[in-house]
Nucleic acid binder design. Structure first.
Lengths: 347, 347
DNA sequence: TACGATCAGGAAATCGGATTCCTAGTTTCC
DNA sequence: GGAAACTAGGAATCCGATTTCCTGATCGTA
C-alpha cells in the first residue's frame, strides 16, 4: 500500500499554517486557541487523514492506552466470552486489547507477561479455563482476574456466583414440586463440580430435603451424562430393567447436571429409556452453552453465567484501577436462570 | 503495585557505569564493545529487571512490532481458531497481537481500523464468520485476509480448500463402495453450502455417479439435519413409513452433510428410525468440530479445515509482506480427512 | 495615556530508546 | 618512531506527539 503516506503532525501544521504545538492543542481541545483556528486545523487534519501516532503519544503520556488480555487457556469455551466481553468494554474506554494466550504453558505465559510489561500496558486482565484459583502474576501495573480468581485474596477477581446459580435452580425445581433430586457432576476435583454439589445439598437441606444418592462424578462429556443416568435409574430398580413399569419406581423426579453437556447426554438416555423429560424426570444443565442447551431434546433449563458481562465487569474494575481506584478481593457476578422445556414441558 | 518502579535505560547505564548508548548497544548486540562490557551491562540490566519501553523503541524504529487481528465476527466458532493460530505464529516472530472484534457492525469496524492505524500496526489479519468474500479495508499497511477472502483478487487471502475437502470425502465414500449419495447443506445462499454441493456433484459425475435427489438446503442446525434425513427417507418410500422393511428400500447408502452439526442431527434421526450408521447409511460431516463430531453417535467421519493452521499461514504471509515480500491472490489450504465410525463402523 | 491582565500561538523541552557521528586510546606496519 | 588503521565508548540527534514556558498582541480600566 501507500507506505510513505503516513501523515505527521507537522504536515497538518504546514497545511493549516500553524505550528505543531497549535495542532496538538487544537485537536485535543487544550490550550487557548481561537475557535476559527481550531476549525482550520481540524479541517486540515481530516483533509490529510491525520491519525496521531500512538507510540509517540504514549511515550509522552507515559501510558500506552492498551491493556493485556492474558488467557491461560487457548481462549476456550469459557475464557473466550470473557475475553470478548472485556475487549468490548475496553473499546468504550478508548483502550486497545493485546491478546496473549498461554496455552497452559508457564514458559509461554512468562514470555507473554514480559511482552506486556515491555509494552507498558496500563493493566492486565487474566482469565483461566476453570474456576480454580491460580497463582497471581507479578507485574508493575494493575491486574484483574476474571473467571479464575487469584489465589491471593488481596488481588481483584471477578468470578461467576456458582452458589447463587445453584440456588436459583433449586428454587425453580422445588417450586415445581420436585422433591427427589439427584446430582451429576463433572470431574470430581474441580471447583465447579464441588461448589455446585455442596450448594445443592445445602439448599435442599434448608428445605428439609436431601440429594438422592451420592453425587456422581465423571468427566464433562455427554457420554458420562448418559452413563450417569443409567446409574441413577439402576439405583432405583436393582440391576434388572423391567421395561414398562419403570416410571412407577423412579428413584428421582429431577436430575441436576453440572453442565449442559452432561444434561444433554442425560436427556438423550432418559428418552432412550422411554422416560419423558420433564414429565417423568426434570433435567437442568449449567452454562447455557447454546449449542448444547438449545440443541438438546428438550431444550435445557440451565444457568447462564453471563461470562461476557463478567469480562466486561473485569474491564470496568481494571479501568477504575488504572484511574487510581483499585478494587480488592473477589467479586461474584450473579448468573441468570434460563428456563426451558426440560423442566417446564412445552410451556 | 510498585508503579514508580519502571526501570529506564539510564538506570541500567548508571549501575553499569556506562552511557545509555552503550547499554543499548550491549543489549542489542550492535556497535563495537568489549565483551566484558556487554556482560557487565547485561548483568546490570537483569539485576534491575530492565525491559525496554516498546513505545520508545517503536517510535524510533518506525515499526510497532504489533499486528492487528480484525475479526468481523465476535470471534466465533470459525474465526476463533484462525485468530488463535495467527496469534500463535506471531509470537514466534516477536510480534504482539491487537485484538479487534467488529461484531458485524461497520461502524465498529471502522473505529477499530482507525485505532489500528493509529497504533501503526505493521500489518493486519482480517477474518470473517463465513467464507463469503468481503470488502477489503483501506489501510497504509499490508493486510492478509483469512477464511473470508477479500473481494479484490489482488489482495492476499488464505481460505480453506473446500473443493479438496469434498473430493477427499467422495474418494473415501466411493472407495468404501457407497454409490447412492445424498447431500444436505446449510443455508442455501452460503458459499460453504454451494461449493460443497457443486464439488460433490462434479466428483460423482467424474465417476459416472450422480447425487441422489436434489440437494437439500435449510439452516445449520441439528434440527434441520434430522428433518433432512426424514425427507430423504420419505423420498424413497412414498409417504407411508412401514417399519421393518425400510432398509430394503433405502434410497441412499450414504449422506454427505455440509457440517458436523447437520450430520449429528442426521445420525440421531437415522438411529431413531432404526437404521444403522454406517451399515445401512454412511454419514459424513464437515468441520471436525469436536463437540459435535466426537459426541455424535457414532463419531463422525468429517473434514478438518485446519483453521489454526490457516491462521498460522495468514500470519506467515503477513510477516513476509511486512518484510517486503507481499503475496497476491487466494491461497487455498488443504484440509484433512478425519475418518471415524460413521463411515467405517467400529474400525 | 499607560499599565496590568488576558489571550493566541509559537519555541523548546520532554518522553525513552536507537543510531549516527565523534573522539580519545590502542595497534599495526613501514 | 611516527603515521595510518582500528577500537571502545560517549555525545548528540532523531522518532512524533504533548506540554510547559514564553512572547507579542489585544483588551480593560484608572
Amino acid at each position: 500500500m501507500d507506505r510513505g503516506a503516513v501523515v505527521r503532525i507537522t504536515d497538518v501544521a504546514a497545511l493549516a499554517g500553524v505550528s505543531p504545538s497549535t495542532v496538538s492543542k487544537a485537536l485535543n481541545d487544550t490550550g487557548s486557541l481561537r475557535e476559527s483556528t481550531r476549525a482550520r486545523v481540524r479541517e486540515a487534519a481530516d483533509r490529510l487523514g491525520f491519525v496521531p501516532d500512538a507510540s509517540a503519544r504514549s511515550l509522552s503520556a507515559r501510558r500506552s492506552f492498551t491493556v493485556g488480555l492474558l488467557s491461560t487457556d487457548s481462549a476456550g469455551r469459557f475464557s473466550l466470552p470473557v475475553v470478548l466481553g472485556a475487549e468490548n468494554a475496553l473499546v468504550g474506554g478508548e483502550l486497545s486489547a493485546l491478546l496473549a494466550t498461554a496455552r497452559h504453558d508457564p514458559v509461554r505465559e512468562q514470555h507473554h507477561v514480559r511482552a506486556l510489561v515491555a509494552r507498558r500496558v496500563d493493566g492486565i486482565i487474566v482469565t483461566g479455563r476453570t474456576t480454580e484459583p491460580r497463582e497471581p502474576i507479578k507485574v508493575p501495573m494493575p491486574v484483574v482476574y476474571a473467571f479464575a480468581p487469584s489465589s491471593d485474596p488481596d488481588d481483584a477477581s471477578v468470578v461467576p456466583d456458582d452458589a447463587l446459580g445453584m440456588r436459583l435452580l433449586v428454587e425453580h425445581l422445588v417450586g415445581l414440586g420436585r422433591r427427589r433430586i439427584a446430582y451429576v457432576g463433572g470431574r470430581a476435583e474441580q471447583a465447579a463440580s464441588l461448589v455446585r454439589y455442596v450448594t445443592l445439598a445445602a439448599e435442599l437441606a434448608a428445605r428439609d430435603l436431601a440429594v438422592v444418592g451420592e453425587p456422581l462424578y465423571g468427566d464433562w462429556s455427554e457420554q458420562w451424562g448418559r452413563r450417569a443416568v443409567e446409574q441413577i435409574l439402576a439405583g432405583g430398580l436393582g440391576s434388572g430393567s423391567g421395561s414398562g413399569s419403570e416410571k412407577r419406581d423412579l428413584p428421582v423426579d429431577a436430575i441436576v447436571f453440572a453442565s449442559d453437556q452432561l444434561a444433554r447426554g442425560g436427556c438423550d438416555r432418559l428418552r432412550e429409556r422411554g422416560l419423558r423429560v420433564p414429565d417423568d424426570v426434570a433435567v437442568t444443565g449449567y452454562d447455557d452453552w447454546d449449542v448444547m442447551s438449545l440443541a438438546s431434546r428438550p431444550p435445557l433449563t440451565t444457568v447462564d453465567m453471563q461470562l461476557e458481562r463478567l469480562g466486561q465487569r473485569a474491564a470496568e474494575l481494571l479501568i477504575a484501577a488504572i484511574e487510581g481506584d483499585p478494587a480488592r478481593g473477589v467479586e461474584r457476578l450473579a448468573p441468570r436462570l434460563v428456563v426451558r422445556a426440560s423442566t417446564l414441558g412445552d410451556g
